[in-house]
Design a protein around this nucleic acid. Structure first.
Length: 582
RNA sequence: GCGCUUGUAGCUCAGCUGGAUAGAGCUACGGACUUCUAAUCCGUAGGUCGGGGGUUCGAAUCCCUCCAAGCGCACCA
């Protein structure tokens, strides 16, 4: 990491400087920590101000009782002048400290790309920590809608980001196969299934749309024939088997759809398993023993208000049946027992009411406050031109995720859904998504990668004076270690122009982006970064010739190869292909 | 009625743990292929940051209020 490491170093140097500056009165430690949290070392909005900027002098001025400009001067002489990496340090009113890195410092960073190669971008900040991310978890009672695609992609990419940060990640899908909705779905399937045999069984009034169910009934019939009919004349069926198989079939459809856009899970957790081995009774006993519940009007209530929820919740209804919330409790206890350090739930905005109650459960069973984090993803609205298409899953209208996946393709869908923050209410323009035009930024990024691919092909075609077989082989196997030597042997490396330097700079930022994307649970950092990198590369490509006649400009080639590795690794995290040719 | 989220350029979005002239892309208009892929590049145009108050040296960012949109407020799952 470049920026984050520099920042750490800067902050610790700054602490030293302040110690010298001010006699510690022993009381100010806490407030100083607070001030330090608002210190930034980052790229300025405007490139003219340099590579990096810090607000430290302004933030600290009142603490050290000095004018920002004066303290900035001390920071410059006391810290930055001792760093050998910085080039020029400017202090600008009202107290910004701006500086540029020496070209050599950027080059040394570039070396890491070739040393770490496929692992470049990753770090070990999460080493030894087990984290679970649960996402999609749509009821297996119908096909997925487009919103599910968004959670799926975001969950998948977020998982990949955590993996790259050294975490031990488990991706989980929670299957609601228990309770009334599953029963209703099974009854729908049964009705359509029996129809095949000319037997009438009323379709539930509040049932699911037939379009979704009919695929399931069709498959039940095709795969099992009359297996579920236990008595021919009365049309008596094995309802338990129908329910189980209907749900399994639906789940297989869901799995296929998700798989078609590259969204996979390590674990498909079945709700009904929570009720095995008298677990329900055990959990209820546990809750009673810990005085977390009370009885009222024949129902059993969970005291969630004690833990920050806005109302208490029923666990066992007055008719004796457990509520969905009971499953939530058992599920969270189960997750805790599996030994995760932290849990992430990605929920659709239609479930935001869950935040407080899930957190309440977590607290009540003694989990740390920040151990359970819930990410709310806003819904996707379908738009065609200017017309808003109301989608309703229960009514079976609107485009399904499966339709979209087939229309748009995996790469575009993943890029599109990774582009925005979770909080964005997205409008998904179907007609735009279907266009495979340059309006779709995924091509822009992929094209950058493919262009470098074509440089490599050119290298092979032409006999070059300064690049041998060995190097070309290395490049082809995408393990261009020779670049490390090239970079090391450059006696005085300076960038010829801004496009070279900017490209190298952006390449060097990749590990910071992977780190920050994780800290902020923000997959879109990556997407935006890759777009920026691609832009930087396209500019570089248009302004610098790498191969002329029978000679390659080695420095530029190294730069292009570094960019290629980062593009490939970045697209890899997004789960998007990095084509050699387009 | 209460709560969560959002409101930034014609469109889609960044920026929101306060900082320097508010940034990209798409669209529109004008340029660049005898040279490693023009799915690219360069340039121009486009903004009362939903409205109004407040806090501050400084507000798109924090607070209050109003308006608008989406979504929730079950002994449904």
């Amino acid at each position: 990491m470049l920026v984050n490491l520099l920042k750490d170093r800067f902050l610790s140097d700054l602490k030293e400087l302040i110690k010298k500056n001010k006699k510690d009165d022993g009381k100010s430690g806490a407030s100083l920590d607070k001030i330090f949290k608002s210190i930034r070392l980052e790229e300025p909005k405007n490139k003219e101000f340099g590579d990096l900027t810090t607000n430290a002098a302004m933030v600290l001025s009142s603490y050290v009782k000095k004018k920002p400009m004066d303290f900035a001067e001390e920071v410059r002489s006391g810290i930055f002048s001792k760093w050998k990496m910085d080039e020029s340090v400017a202090i600008i009113n009202p107290g910004f400290i701006n500086f540029n890195l020496k070209d050599r410092a950027i080059i040394e960073n570039l070396n890491q790309v070739f040393i770490e190669d496929k692992n470049y971008g990753g770090n070990n900040s999460g080493a030894g920590r087990k984290i679970q991310i649960e996402y999609v978890s749509s009821n297996p009672t119908g096909s997925l809608h487009i919103g599910h695609g968004r959670w799926g992609v975001l969950g998948d990419v977020l998982s990949a980001i955590y993996v790259r940060n050294g975490y031990d990640v488990q991706r989980e899908y929670y299957v609601n196969d228990y309770g009334t909705q599953a029963k209703i779905f099974a009854a729908c399937a049964k009705s359509l299934y029996l129809k095949k045999f000319g037997v009438r069984f009323a379709y539930p009034q509040d049932g699911y749309p037939e379009t979704a169910v009919s695929i399931v009934a069709e498959k039940l019939y095709k795969d099992y024939g009359d297996k579920f009919i236990t008595s021919s004349s009365e049309a008596i069926t094995d309802d338990i088997a129908i329910e189980k198989n209907a749900i399994d079939i639906m789940l297989a459809f869901i799995r296929n759809t998700l798989s078609s856009i590259g969204v996979e899970f390590d674990n498909w957790f079945v709700e009904s398993s929570l009720y095995e081995n008298n677990n329900f009774e055990k959990v209820i006993k546990f809750l009673k023993d810990n005085s977390l519940v009370y009885e009222q009007e024949n129902a059993l209530w969970f005291k969630s208000t004690n833990y920050g929820d806005d109302k208490d919740r029923v666990i066992i209804r007055s008719d004796g049946n457990p509520t969905y919330f009971a499953s939530d409790i058992m599920y969270l206890i189960n997750k805790k027992e599996r030994g995760f350090d932290s849990l992430i739930y990605i929920l659709g905005a239609d479930h935001h009411g869950y935040i407080s109650r899930l957190k309440a459960i977590g607290k009540s069973i003694g989990m740390a406050d920040d151990a359970v984090s819930i990410i709310i993803g806003q819904l996707v609205r379908l738009v065609e031109g200017k017309e808003v298409l109301k989608m309703s899953r229960r009514k079976g209208r609107g485009m399904t995720l499966d339709d979209l996946a087939k229309d748009v393709g995996k790469d575009a869908i993943r890029y599109f859904f990774s582009m925005n923050s979770f909080d964005t209410h997205m409008d998904f323009d179907i007609s735009l998504a279907k266009k495979k035009s340059s309006q779709n930024p995924v091509f822009y990024v992929q094209y950058a990668h493919a262009r470098i691919g074509s440089i490599i092909r050119k290298l092979k075609e032409i006999k070059l004076d300064n690049i041998g077989e060995k190097e070309i082989n290395e490049i082809e196997n995408s393990s261009a270690v020779f670049c490390v030597e090239v970079l090391k042997n450059l006696k005085s490396f300076e960038f010829k122009n801004n496009s070279e330097r900017n490209l190298a700079w952006v390449v060097s930022l990749f590990p910071d982006i992977v780190y920050d994307a994780c800290k902020n649970n923000a997959p879109y950092f990556l997407t935006q970064y890759l777009y920026r990198l691609s832009g930087e590369f396209h500019y570089f490509y248009n302004h610098n010739i790498i191969i002329s006649r029978n000679k390659a400009n080695i420095k530029r080639l190294v730069l292009a190869l570094a960019a290629k590795t980062v593009l490939k690794n970045g697209l890899g995290i997004l789960g998007i292909s990095a084509p050699e040719k387009m």
